[in-house]
Design a protein around this nucleic acid. Structure first.
Lengths: 220, 220
DNA sequence: TAGATTGTTAATCGATTAACAATC
DNA sequence: TAGATTGTTAATCGATTAACAATC
């Protein structure tokens, strides 16, 4: 481990993990920086640099064993250590995450969801109990929660974030599309700004009547 | 307009737009690179550089008029020109977007959604008709569709993308979490990899027992 | 062993920051 | 006018790419 790993590198690690998981499923045992370069559209040089931030995963003359490299990157990302998460807001988006997003694949255990709808409170979705939003603060006193997933209406986002942060939640995964300007101390904020993503796509589409291909996918 | 605008700059434009929209709503009329710097956590220098890629929006000695700057950035992103979009897959995620995401704010008009569920086909959600997925290819022959939003199960993603691309769809907003490896020609792919976002958050949370604050939000 | 491929150092490139003359 | 702030050029910094010795 060098010194301080740049945000650019960290945001590429999940891509490596994703790709390697796919390769492992496809039965590919061995790879190399040149092979990954072709598959991922990064230079072999960059791949070797990136991987070396975390330690020598490879073997000279051979390359990388897919399963080992995958495990090492998962390790670097901390996936093996399970963190707890709760979903705040069990509307369509919250339910989409509860039902379809494999939190456990990424080292998270969903322990509860919160909603204000009395018809929902007391039920379960995908095995996760739906609790009354009014009890969120109380819940935090009794349970350790590492991450709060904000999938509630924008106007409640700020309050929810402040309650979460005050209650010891260390990270907020914010889907509300607003930037929460409250001072949340050490709480880490990860914003999912779908509008940024769509506007970027729009930019590239409108830029060309029918010319080349300026963008190729992205992370997140 | 300089020459080729870097992807970094383009991915910052939606952030400016978002912030300026908020400022306009708050009744703020005038701003400056120094003011935006404080609000957004970028340097004033970078802000001036970014804005100048698209033209002199400011006025020396005064700064920027919020409404003008907002309009200019929206213009640069192409928001005023409306593109058409369809949602493929009206499950929880598709419905979340149909109900809560303000496509029109970003220059898109949702013209249809597609699903395989017979109970859904023929109904409307938020004024958007739900059509039979089997009719998607057919629909494309009769209607111009600029963007297909993929919110269907992973296993159908590749086929949907190929049908879309073959039918003249120019951009794909991919929520399925898989990388679609088919050759889609000129079709631009914008991937929303939620797992990348969560893994990044996890990295920053696990990295510290309780130390400083390495990450501060991000775009998307 | 010879060939292949890493780990790592050095060179290049691009992006960010600083500085300042232009000008409102 | 004097003060403020841009637009833009130059300097710095960091990230990517290239090169190659180490070694499996």
């Amino acid at each position: 481990m060098k010194y301080r790993i740049s945000a650019n590198v960290i945001r590429r690690l999940p891509r490596y993990l994703r790709r390697l998981t796919g390769m492992e499923k496809a039965g590919i045992v061995r790879t190399s920086s040149a092979d990954l370069s072709r598959r991922m559209g990064l230079t072999a040089s960059q791949i070797r640099q990136d991987l070396n931030c975390f330690g020598g995963f490879g073997q000279q003359g051979y390359g990388y064993r897919v399963s080992d490299l995958k495990a090492s990157i998962a390790e670097a990302l901390g996936v093996p250590e399970t963190l707890t998460a709760v979903v705040i807001g069990a509307g369509n988006l919250g339910r989409a995450l509860l039902a379809n997003f494999r939190f456990s694949d990424y080292g998270f255990a969903l322990t509860a969801a919160f909603d204000t709808d009395p018809a929902l409170v007391g039920t379960e979705i995908s095995g996760v109990p739906i609790l009354d939003s009014a009890r969120f603060g109380e819940y935090l006193k009794e349970h350790r929660v590492d991450v709060a997933v904000l999938t509630l209406p924008k106007k409640f986002a700020r309050d929810a974030a402040m309650t979460a942060s005050a209650g010891g939640v260390r990270g907020i995964w914010n889907f509300t599309g607003i930037d929460i300007d409250a001072d949340l101390g050490d709480t880490v904020m990860e914003n999912v700004h779908l509008s940024d993503s769509l506007l970027t796509l729009g930019y590239y589409l409108r830029g060309r009547t029918d010319s080349g291909s300026p963008a190729r996918g992205n992370g997140i």
